[in-house]
Amino acid sequence: MKNRYWIVWMAVALLVMFAPLPTRAAPPQERFYRVEASQFEYRPAILKANPGDRVTIELAALDVVHGLAIDGYNLETTAEPGQPARLTFTADRSGAFRLRCTMTCGNLHPFMIGKLNVGDNQLLWRASGLAFLAALAGAASRPGREGLASILQAWRRQR
């Protein structure tokens, strides 16, 4: 009896992991971000876009030569103080992408990072769902109980 429930748990887990979430369909738009780079931060450090948006990033260096590369998008540029640089691209891949400085700008240069979020952060929701499911499964399989059925029985009894 108890042994069969793992199939149900796995099915629910797979559903949580791979079920397509409803996406808010926003019409593609133009987005412009002016990112000011100084030792050792980007301002703003988190950029947001919807999938399909046309994004322009103007990189302005405020102290020394800084660079900007977006992991997963194969884009790179550098800016000197007084000479801002621009990157224009279509955000056609959704997810969270790391921004990194590409010019050695000082001792904390490796920690000069930012993030580009394209679309909703589905990974967060799916991970939360899986964590909740794991907790539920753990509670259900405590010794002395008989799986999911016992949880439902306990719940009915309370009512």
């Binding site: 260096a61 103080p81 007084g82």
Partner: peptide, 15 residues
């Protein structure tokens, strides 16, 4: 020059 005098000459560069 632009780092101090500004890209548009307004004396408003990043420094």
């Amino acid at each position: 020059c632009a780092a101090c005098h500004g890209e548009s000459g307004g004396g408003d560069g990043v420094f």
